[in-house]
Write a protein that binds this DNA or RNA. Structure first.
Lengths: 216, 216
DNA sequence: TAGTAGATTGACCCATTGGTCAATAAATAG
DNA sequence: CTATTTATTGACCAATGGGTCAATCTACTA
């Protein structure tokens, strides 16, 4: 530890603050001064750890996404059947720790800048690819054919995007339960009812509740 | 005509330019100077017609949405059956004149500011309400029960939002055809196949093609 | 033709922004 | 204890932002 560690910790602190400011004030309102104020440090101190404002925001976004990814990985490791893996992805994407309007604001703000900032474009691409890939492999393993798995993954990821957008726009006071219910309705019509899927869903929902309550 | 008319036309010109700049450069990049340059006028001239930058962008967004709404109304007037009205909404939302990455950029940029600008919040609310209401009444009239119509409208509007988001993020080179195909796949699983619905779809698709080709 | 309302603009103002830099304080290593 | 690295910061800078204003310029009206 020592100097290396403190630098690493400080970077994390600033990045965390940056994401909070982004979620709270949007991209326009995310100034170096505000991020500095939010941590109690000076603007120059922030720039000591991040060469750029964009660099700062980039790591802020990556760091925020990492928490969701860790939750997802934890649940995927526990899941044993394909449908359990499927619901692990769903539950992770609507975990109460991450599926919140403020956090959604941050991500929508990033999406708006994707066409203009190459770094954000890259982040967005990798997040989408991962989601689609995970959904696809889970669905394929349930026994359906390739095209059905692919289009199914596409539809589900589309719904997830839409629900996150709505969470940010706070349409109909959308919460975790309504969001997963929306997904489930489509999943049911797409793949029919089955006891196996149902038990997988209840298992992963319970697991998600246990994991997140423990974390908080 | 005369003075009143010229003022009105000028406002429209500036608003139009403002939306183009917004679509091209995002919310941060949409400066009064750039909008002025885009029309060949001066910054002060823009501010002669719009008291605020926000006022300018607000009318820009409203004006842009009006074109989509007009297309939708035109198709709705021609539609006679419930399913035709349903596909009128779908086709209008994926019309080649509006379903373009640049335009999507503009709307995503607005979404990102919704939590921070009350005017944008209002625009977003009215657009969503109209879409949901139109879908709901169309679906209800097809003979299904209220809750099914409501949840169906919710799912479809969710997909539309997701597809527009993806259009803006340019995931998988999404075009009009793929987008409507995505919608259709879900509609089919939700409401089953029926000759009546199929004919309604082909009719409205053709109508949309005719209307938009005529316009351009 | 004179007058007046609206259109257009350059010059200007102030606040804020991202970013630099040199100076200082603190901590670690030898 | 000394030296060197690292952390922190206030002062500063150039650029740009939105917005004001008074001065023209234009076109319609009486």
């Amino acid at each position: 530890m020592g100097r290396r560690s403190i630098a690493h910790i400080r970077r994390e602190e600033f990045a965390h603050a940056a994401f909070e400011v982004l979620a709270l004030h949007g991209m326009q309102g995310t100034t170096l001064q505000r991020v500095a104020d939010h941590t109690g440090a000076s603007k120059a101190s922030v720039l000591h750890y991040f060469s750029n404002k964009q660099n700062l925001i980039e790591t802020a976004l990556r760091q925020s996404n990492a928490t969701l990814r860790k939750e997802a990985v934890a649940m995927m490791n526990i899941a044993t059947t394909p449908w359990e893996r499927f619901y692990a992805i769903i539950e992770a994407n609507f975990s109460p720790t991450t599926f919140q309007p403020e956090i959604a604001h941050g991500w929508i703000a990033m999406c708006a800048e994707v066409p203009h900032v190459a770094q954000f474009q890259r982040i967005q691409t990798v997040i989408y690819s991962r989601l689609h890939c995970n959904l696809f492999t889970a669905l394929l393993a349930t026994g359906i054919d390739r095209t059905a798995a692919d289009s199914g993954a596409e539809t589900i990821s589309l719904l997830i995007d839409g629900l996150w957008l709505r969470c940010g726009l706070q349409i109909g006071g959308l919460n975790r339960q309504e969001a997963t219910a929306q997904i489930e309705r489509v999943v049911e019509t797409l793949f029919g009812k089955s006891a196996e899927r149902q038990s997988a869903k209840t298992k992963m929902t319970a697991l998600a509740a246990a994991l997140t309550s423990r974390a908080q």
